[in-house]
Design a protein around this nucleic acid. Structure first.
Lengths: 364, 364
DNA sequence: CTGAAAGCGCTAACAT
DNA sequence: ATGTTAGCGCTTTCAG
């Protein structure tokens, strides 16, 4: 069985030099139309499939792929509609330059992709999609000297990045909810640290947060809570390791005994889970419980969820542009995109306290 | 500014040969622990980031990536929860062998990825995720001689593939619906041909279908319809170019004037859109309208949708295994996975005909 | 417009 | 256990 033909074989078969054969593919202007014609025809005849991508990648010093570092396994990472929209924008922005996306899911053990996978990825640049600030995968990227753009992470020194004004967004929803008269809010949060913990997160743990998004949104909620004269320590924070509907359901189940009248969830996915869990417990939204989300995914719109809109697609596009700029030797500066409160129908004033229920923080 | 160190620099700095330096990374057993130690220490000192993936990819003849050909832009492709689960299974199955996924979204102009993108992708094998039978991207993969596994496509001659028994699944839901007493079903279908057309699809167009999934499910519905003594030509089929909620909403809006009492949708996403559209029109499900989906995504479960379950994750795992087998030089045979009818609460007997409404096909 | 030469960075025989 | 040698397949100056 003859081995797969290479450019050399093609050149020989077409009676031209290797460089001319190469040019037939990459620089049509460097040779006569006939030559090109003949080379291509010969290629078809001998079954030469075009220049080997690996060979040209090495020679050109260009892989034609951009790495996408995810903080979760694909089942979780992609079950969030927000990720789909973000990636749509990203791929849209870079495909014309000939880049595809190499997806690196989080490790089975939690956290970002396995360092070894990052080390061996054939990519020209990398985007870190909301990893923990100290994720080892980031260090590998830096060691490799690859251009890096972080998303929803504080711009590392000298690293480009795109984020959203999470704190302002969070403060806005929280103010809205508090403005409705709620005095007993609860928070359903993303993970604080990449250790897979699920459940109540006290002050200690909140302080140790390594996920910027979580930290910022928490800060926003907190600012609003304190501005309303409440004590942040009285606000229960339930941590969900994954941005998943089911974890929202579980969260509200655990929170309910604490008697919250409103739940501030860090994503629409989680919020939708909370709504469902509340319904399972016989509560109506917003009658018995006010629930808010974050992101403004299409699912949130369908469900009438009050939430915070962030420009997901645009975020992807910006990241793509930064990546391209970096690859072109420029040094784009970090960007922060705005958020916008979207009030729908999942919020209402708190219900009149039921008999026997505690009325305010610390007051029996 | 010193250029990025290569293995040669490392070898020189550590006072060993290039092969020894290489072995320090790839074959720890081929050199003494001290040598290895010293090499690695030197690497850290001079800032050598480890062997260049592009170089080793060429030398080894192994890219470390598997191409995923999608039939849609990422915004659509990933907004389907089914895709997330499938990819989760796929990546899970191949990551231990060191493969990442290179995502190639459909072209802006519709259909699968741009041929050029497929031609230049640095990958070792490819999976075609429900493309049209005649998609040009597939031809490019074959020309390149890359191992190929198709999903939801008829196994091409000599090509591995994993599919689901779409026809049986479709027949099962349709029989279930018909068994409920419906005589006026309508179908909300996926695209028949990659031309972006949205709207009613007559016999002509149905016959020309190039998407196997669409064709098979249609065949299943049809079999059940005819077995129930109805005429397939009387069953309106509405085609949706994308598997998107909104297109489901639009579909039912157009179908409603035709007076269907049940809608068989080809995906849960579409079905959910139909449910919403029906609600918008003041109809209740299943009181006024029976709606069924396909896939059994988590969203379907949440919504109480009667649907057809297909083993999404397992499908991904199988595809991964086939890819691995192909890469190992084996020749896996095509597999067809079973489906299962999942009856929930979106189906009920048809409502009593309203005054002035046509009662049966062709009877005024 | 075409060809010759050099080498991208690495790894795998093979020899020592 | 370590070093030598020979490319993997391609693109790109640089001459002609």
């Amino acid at each position: 069985m003859p081995r797969r033909p290479t450019l050399r074989d093609l050149a020989a078969a077409a009676g031209v030099s290797r460089s001319t054969a190469s040019n037939a593919y990459n620089r049509p202007d460097q040779l006569s139309a006939e030559s090109r014609e003949r080379v291509l025809a010969t290629a078809a005849r001998i079954g030469y499939p075009g220049p080997s991508p690996a060979g040209s990648a090495l020679r050109r010093g260009r892989a034609g792929a951009l790495g996408v570092l995810l903080g979760d396994r694909l089942g979780y990472a992609f079950s969030d509609p927000a990720a789909a929209v973000f990636l749509d924008g990203l791929s849209e922005a870079v495909e014309d330059e000939g880049y595809a996306l190499l997806v690196l899911p989080g490790a089975r053990t939690g956290g970002g992709p396995a360092p070894e996978a990052v080390r061996t990825a054939v990519v020209d640049a990398v985007v870190a999609y909301s990893l923990a600030d100290d994720d080892p995968a980031i260090a590998v990227v830096r060691d490799r000297g690859l251009p890096l753009v972080t998303v929803d992470q504080p711009a590392l020194p000298g690293v480009a990045g795109v984020r959203v004004d999470d704190e302002a967004g969070a403060r806005a929803v929280a103010e809205h909810v508090l403005g409705l008269g709620h005095r007993r809010p609860a928070v359903v949060a993303f993970e604080l640290t990449a250790d897979g913990r699920e459940g109540p997160a006290g002050a200690e743990r909140q302080r140790a947060a390594t996920f910027t998004v979580t930290r910022d949104r928490l800060a926003g909620y907190r600012a609003a809570v304190e501005a309303a004269g409440l004590n942040w320590a009285d606000v229960p924070v339930h941590e969900c390791p994954h941005n998943a509907f089911l974890e929202g359901v579980r969260a509200i189940a655990e929170l309910l005994p604490l008697g919250p009248t409103a739940v501030l969830a860090m994503s629409d996915e989680l919020a939708l889970g909370v709504v469902r869990g509340a319904a399972d417990a016989g509560l109506t939204v917003p009658g018995d419980l006010t629930v808010t989300g974050f992101d403004d995914t299409t699912a949130a719109a369908r469900a009438g969820l009050t939430t915070v809109r962030q420009p997901l697609r645009d975020k992807g596009v910006r990241v793509g542009e930064q990546l391209l700029a970096l690859l072109a030797g420029e040094t784009p500066s970090p960007q922060t995109l705005p958020t916008e409160l979207v009030v729908r129908s999942s919020g209402a004033p708190p219900p009149a306290p039921r008999a026997g229920q505690r009325v305010g923080p610390g007051r029996p």
